[in-house]
Design a protein around this nucleic acid. Structure first.
Length: 466
RNA sequence: GGCCCGUUCGUCUAUCGGUUAGGACACCAGAUUUUCAUUCUGGUAAGAGGGGUUCGACUCCCCUACGGGCUGCCA
């Protein structure tokens, strides 16, 4: 491997960034960045009907959220159409392409007729070897003069050696009659011009690679390393679609999955390195290689995604977590936290971050710190604040006035109050929890008391005891 | 229809001719515990089917079934 690695991600801007596209981008990024190479981004917007700037913006946002940064400017394929046309003309000059004057109606009629006969013959242009003297003054396309015999061999890093019979490939159109390039020509020209050394993309392009290889050959260009990776499927094994739920990368952000966990999960989906399961991005960069990619399509498993994300939330440092949580609130369209809430949240992270798998879960668990008095107990919490319990709380509160606010100091007090009332600690914790959080499911009562502080604790207990 | 790719526990995967087929998620059971969760321990669970090749196949070859892709002046 002498040349520095150059990979690229080349989505067409017809919608949001698909989760499968996100993974393809991730693999390209991992491969290039892990070897000190470049990762380029090209928007394949030659289809003017379907391409939109909104889609491009969404794709960029998705990549940015995933933490996949690209080198240089974003390349617009459409902007390079003159260069594509130039290459098509050069193929003409080389005799590896020809002008075809067959109209779309003629071709459609040919196909309809073939279908009526029950056959599926490829369209063979009558202009392939026509004498230029017979050319009409009419619109034409430029078609690849593809070899009709022999075979084209794709040496794919993932799929192995794939042999395609040339007789099964037609003379594909390279330049449309309006002089815009087709995808087949544009990718090859752009990948060549951008110096792409490794083409890592979905295996729906595996067959296309044969046609594209013919263009490389026609131009005497060096063929890149191919790596066609399997597509991601839904939990039912079918191609991932809307009915499976979230298919857009940004939806995952809005659902509150941390980006690092997402990267970890997506890296591990369809790729393995021994028993490595939970790893940082830095570690992934070290380990990632093309030969660890499987050949079969992988299914999305939300349970495992959550588990992976839980590990990453527990692993991240508080400042980073807080920062990402803030971004999540924006993405999910939820109200931002106040400065006070931010401070409280930060001091509460230690007792909740290793128990949450997503940001909504994290917020749910830290609910006790974010609310302010008067606390409205929910139904279940209200039940544990019965007359007897309130009486116990009244005896407890004064004892909390002059203690150092640490678990060590608090513990004997609470234990003693429980003992004096002839109840176990659990029986005491229940109304305490209700008074402090208004709920029956919370972090430990000590953690809550420590987080909200002495004054607030006493105030909430007094509120509940009346 | 033609061509191409794929098929190991429910899921993601390890294995690259010889293993009691390993790990992770999920699930089940137990332990820890002031609730929930976490954590810990243990358990259930797999080579699509059929032929070959071989002393020996999950691993190599062929067929079938199933899934996916391509077969556009879409990408």
């Amino acid at each position: 491997m002498s040349r520095p690695v150059v990979t690229r991600f080349a989505p067409s801007p017809t919608g949001y960034l698909h989760i499968g596209g996100g993974r393809t981008a991730l693999f390209n990024w991992l491969y290039a960045r892990g070897r000190g190479g470049k990762f380029l981004l090209r928007i394949e917007d030659t289809d003017r009907e379907r391409s939109t700037p909104e889609a491009t913006a969404a794709i960029l946002r998705g990549l940015t959220w995933l933490g996949l940064d690209w080198d240089g400017d974003v390349v617009s394929q459409f902007d390079r159409k003159d260069r594509h046309a130039e290459v098509a003309r050069e193929m003409l000059a080389r005799g590896t392409a020809y002008k075809c004057f067959s109209t779309q109606e003629e071709i459609a009629a040919f196909r309809a007729e073939a279908e009526a006969r029950g056959s599926y013959a490829l369209f063979q242009s009558p202009w392939r070897d026509a004498d230029p003297a017979t050319f009409p003054d009419a619109p034409f396309v430029i078609r690849m003069k593809a070899p009709r015999t022999g075979e084209t061999i794709i040496n794919d890093t993932v799929q192995g050696r794939v042999v395609i019979q040339n007789s099964s490939l037609d003379d594909m159109i390279c330049l449309r009659s309006d002089a815009t390039p087709t995808y087949m020509l544009a990718v090859v020209v752009d990948d060549h011009d951008m110096g792409v050394t490794h083409v890592i993309r979905g295996d729906d392009h595996l067959n296309n690679a044969a046609r594209q290889q013919m263009i490389y050959d026609a131009m005497s260009w060096e063929i890149p390393v191919w790596a066609h990776i399997p597509l991601i499927h839904g939990p039912d094994g079918k191609k991932l679609s809307k009915r499976h739920g979230a298919t857009g990368v940004e939806e995952y952000q809005a659902m509150g999955y941390p980006a690092a966990g997402m990267r970890n999960y997506l890296t591990r989906l369809g790729w393995a390195h021994g028993d490595a399961e939970i790893f940082t991005t830095a570690e992934a960069l070290q380990m990632f290689d093309l030969d660890g990619i499987g050949r079969a399509p992988a299914r999305l498993d939300f349970k495992k995604l959550e588990n992976t994300c839980g590990h990453h939330i527990a692993m991240s440092d508080d400042a980073a977590l807080l920062h990402e949580l803030t971004a999540y609130l924006v993405a999910a369209g939820k109200p931002a936290l106040t400065n006070t809430q931010n401070t409280l949240l930060k001091s509460a992270l230690y007792c909740v971050k290793d128990r949450a798998k997503t940001f909504p879960e994290l917020i749910e668990k830290v609910h006790f710190a974010l609310i302010s008095r008067p606390i409205q107990p929910d139904e279940a919490a209200g039940k544990s604040l019965d007359t007897v319990s309130r009486g116990i709380l009244r005896t407890l509160t004064p004892q909390l006035q002059n203690v150092s606010w640490t678990k060590d100091a608090l513990e004997p007090i609470l234990n003693q109050v429980a003992a004096e009332n002839g109840i176990g600690f659990g029986k005491l914790a229940s109304p305490l929890r209700a008074a402090l959080a208004g709920r029956t499911v919370t972090p430990s009562v000590y953690d809550m008391m420590l987080v909200i502080g002495q004054d607030e604790t006493i105030a909430r207990l007094e509120d509940a005891a009346v």
